[in-house]
């Protein structure tokens, strides 16, 4: 019977973030008549998709026991690059692909610094964060790149498909793929193993360095995707886009119950975590709470979630 109890406890632990999301949602439905409308909900989802995509990558990084502070800068540089190429007359699909590849390369550079040069992830990505942001400023010369003519490109961030915003569809597809990778593939198993015990993983024949590079490259790629969506939706690319997004992404991962020390967590939690942040932002806006207080509330929710999580883990 004890096993059943244990399983119940672990299920509850996994469901914790979801219950939190439901509570916040119910409160907002009661508090604001404008919250539960098709338009608003779709809007929330679209806003969340940017943070969710980055946070998905961050989940992989954190599961390996690392951290990536450069995601916001990667977003800005990739977005600006794609925008610049578009305005230079490049075919939109090619420009998008180049933007994505550039993001992947930026992530891979992070991975190389961490594995080959043996720099702590926090330090390595702190440095590249500054470097990538700097390149974005150089590339845009500090001015927004705007005025895209391609209709296809506008669709990426602003289009609808059967009434659902395209960014939401992209996020759902990416989520499904990443869920499958973490759950069902040797790649996913290795990510957990490396975070759980890197030395033992290496001695089990897992090429830990290579996998960590893949993981950072994946995060770079997803950040670039978020950057391209953002650029498309705002119809403008700016060097300071995505400023502070790394913290929102980390917050989503932590809210979702993934352990910052690595090896433990899941991507469903991250999706829920991103939704909590998105719903909270939206709800507080609707309620007319000042954006200064919104920050305070957001921070307190994160603290509360972590404290509750620890309490459950101890009991």
């Amino acid at each position: 019977m004890a096993i059943d109890k244990k399983q119940l406890a672990s299920t509850l632990q996994k469901l914790g973030p979801l219950i939190g999301l439901l509570i916040i949602t119910v409160i907002l439905i009661i508090a604001s008549p404008n919250f539960l409308t098709v338009n608003n909900i779709l809007n929330v989802f679209r806003q969340v998709s940017i943070n969710a995509l980055i946070a998905f990558g961050m989940t992989f990084v954190i599961l390996t026991g690392g951290i990536d502070l450069s995601v916001g800068a990667t977003l800005a540089l990739s977005g600006a690059l794609t925008a610049g190429l578009l305005n230079g007359g490049m075919d939109p699909l090619t420009a998008i692909i180049i933007g994505l590849v550039a993001g992947g390369v930026m992530g891979a550079v992070n991975g190389l610094l961490i594995t080959k040069a043996n720099i702590a992830p926090f330090i390595a990505t702190l440095a590249t964060m500054t470097i990538y942001r700097g390149f974005a400023l150089v590339y845009t010369d500090g001015r927004p790149i705007t005025g895209f003519e391609s209709e296809l490109f506008t669709l990426v961030g602003g289009g609808y498909f059967f009434g659902v915003p395209v960014p939401v569809i992209i996020t759902i597809i990416i989520f499904a793929i990443l869920f499958f990778i973490l759950r069902k593939t040797t790649f996913g198993r290795n990510v957990y193993a490396i975070g759980g015990n890197e030395e033992a993983s290496l001695l089990s024949g897992i090429k830990t360095g290579r996998f960590k590079i893949y993981v950072y490259a994946l995060t770079g790629l997803l950040s670039a995707l978020a950057g391209i969506i953002l650029t498309s939706r705002l119809n403008s690319a700016q060097a300071n886009a995505g400023f502070g997004y790394e913290l929102d992404a980390i917050a989503a991962v932590v809210l979702g119950g993934t352990s910052l020390s690595g090896g433990r967590g899941w991507i469903v939690g991250t999706l829920v975590g991103a939704l909590i942040i998105g719903v909270l932002n939206n709800g507080l806006n609707l309620l007319g709470v000042s954006s200064f207080y919104q920050q305070v509330v957001k921070g307190m929710v994160i603290l509360l979630a972590v404290l509750l999580d620890r309490k459950k883990a101890n009991s």
Binding site: A193, S201, L203, S204, G205
Partner: peptide, 20 residues
């Protein structure tokens, strides 16, 4: 503990790590 096993993983996962 430090080099042979991933302690936080299950028995099944540890056994399969080397048997992909």
């Amino acid at each position: 503990k430090h080099q042979g096993l991933v302690l936080g993983m299950s028995v099944r996962e540890n056994l399969s790590l080397t048997n992909y």
